[in-house]
C-alpha cells in the first residue's frame, strides 16, 4: 500500500471503527434502560405504600399495617458496626501489605488470596459466621454476630481499595518523607494516610453499600425476619435488616406484602444512593486541592 493510499485510509477500517463505537454505545444503553425499567417498576409498585408511617412502624401480619422501622434501624446498626470492625482491620492490613511487608513470595500468596476472597460468594461467609460467631463465640443471632459476618464479606474489598489508594500516592512523597529522616510510621501517618484517605473512604463506603444489600449471609446466620422491637443490646438482641425484610415479604403470598416489599426496596435504594453520594462528595472534597 502506498503512502497516499494509507493517508486516505481504508474504507473498511473506518466502517469497523464506527460500528464498534455503535456497539459500545448500544451496550451502555442496554444497561441503563434495564436499570430505568427496574426503577420504574419498583417505584410504581411501591410508592403507594411509602409513607412516614411505613418507616415508623414495626412489621405486622397485615400488609397495610406493616412497617420497615426495625429493619431500617437494624441495617443502620449493622452498617455502623461493620464499619467499626472492617475499617481499622482493612486499612491496617492494607498498610502492612503496601508499606511494611517485604515483596516476596509470601506476600504474593497473601495478595492473591485476598483478591480471591473478594470474589467468594457471601453465603460462604454466612456459613463461616454461623459456625464461628454464632456458635463458637456464642454471640447468637445478635447484631455483633451479623456485623462480624458482614465484616468478613467486605474486608477483602476494603483491603484492596485501601491498597489501591496507598499505591496511588506518588513514590516521590514516600521518598521525600524518608529522606527527611521520617520513620515508616511517621511517613504512613503524616503523608500516606492523609493522601490516600479520600480513596480509602470511597472504597469503604462502596464496600459498606455492598454489606447493606447482602441478605444471604444474614439468612445463613439465622437472623430473624419478624422483629417487632428495636435492638438494645447489640450482643444479645435479635435483629433484622432491610434486604432480609424485603426478602421475607416478597416470599409471602399476599399481593399487599409485595407492595410493602417494593416500598422497602425504595428505602434501601435511597440509603444506597445517599451512601454513594457521600463517597463522591468525600472524594471531591478531599481531592480538590490535591494534585501532584
Amino acid at each position: 500500500m502506498s503512502l497516499e493510499e494509507h493517508k486516505r485510509g481504508r474504507p473498511f477500517a473506518k466502517f469497523a471503527s464506527q460500528a464498534f463505537a455503535l456497539l459500545c454505545a448500544g451496550a451502555t444503553w442496554l444497561c441503563v434502560s434495564i436499570l430505568i425499567l427496574l426503577l420504574w417498576n419498583i417505584v410504581s409498585f411501591g410508592l403507594d405504600s411509602l409513607s412516614w408511617d411505613y418507616i415508623n412502624r414495626f412489621p405486622s401480619r397485615f400488609a397495610e399495617k406493616a412497617g420497615i422501622k426495625s429493619a431500617l434501624v437494624g441495617s443502620i446498626y449493622l452498617i455502623g458496626l461493620t464499619a467499626l470492625f472492617a475499617v481499622p482491620v482493612g486499612i491496617g492490613a492494607a498498610i502492612y501489605l503496601e508499606e511494611y511487608s517485604p515483596k516476596n513470595r509470601w506476600q504474593t500468596i497473601v495478595q492473591i488470596n485476598i483478591a480471591n476472597l473478594a470474589g467468594v460468594p457471601s453465603i460462604v461467609y454466612g456459613i463461616l459466621g454461623l459456625g464461628l460467631f454464632v456458635r463458637a463465640m456464642q454471640l447468637n443471632r445478635s447484631l455483633v454476630a451479623g456485623a462480624l459476618t458482614l465484616t468478613l464479606v467486605v474486608l477483602p474489598i476494603v483491603i484492596l481499595a485501601a491498597q489501591e489508594s496507598l499505591r496511588a500516592v506518588p513514590s516521590t512523597i514516600r521518598q521525600a518523607s524518608y529522606a527527611l529522616g521520617a520513620t515508616r510510621w511517621q511517613t504512613v501517618w503524616h503523608q500516606l494516610l492523609p493522601a490516600a484517605l479520600p480513596g480509602i473512604m470511597t472504597g469503604v463506603i462502596l464496600a459498606l453499600s455492598r454489606a447493606l444489600g447482602e441478605a444471604a449471609p444474614l439468612v445463613a446466620i439465622g437472623a430473624a425476619t419478624y422483629v417487632p422491637f428495636l435492638p438494645e443490646d447489640v450482643f444479645k438482641d435479635e435483629f433484622t435488616a432491610l434486604p432480609l425484610q424485603i426478602f421475607n415479604w416478597t416470599g409471602l403470598p399476599q399481593k399487599g406484602f409485595h407492595e410493602v416489599a417494593a416500598a422497602g426496596i425504595i428505602i434501601l435504594l435511597i440509603v444506597l444512593v445517599c451512601m454513594n453520594a457521600l463517597a463522591v462528595a468525600l472524594r471531591y472534597r478531599f481531592s480538590r486541592n490535591k494534585r501532584w
Binding site: P170, T172, I173, Q175, A176, S177, A179, Q191, A195, N289, K290, R291, W292
Partner: peptide, 10 residues
C-alpha cells in the same frame, strides 16, 4: 536529599 522532580508534600 533533594530530588530531580520537585516533590513538595500536598
Amino acid at each position: 536529599m533533594v530530588f530531580q522532580k520537585s516533590n513538595p508534600f500536598p
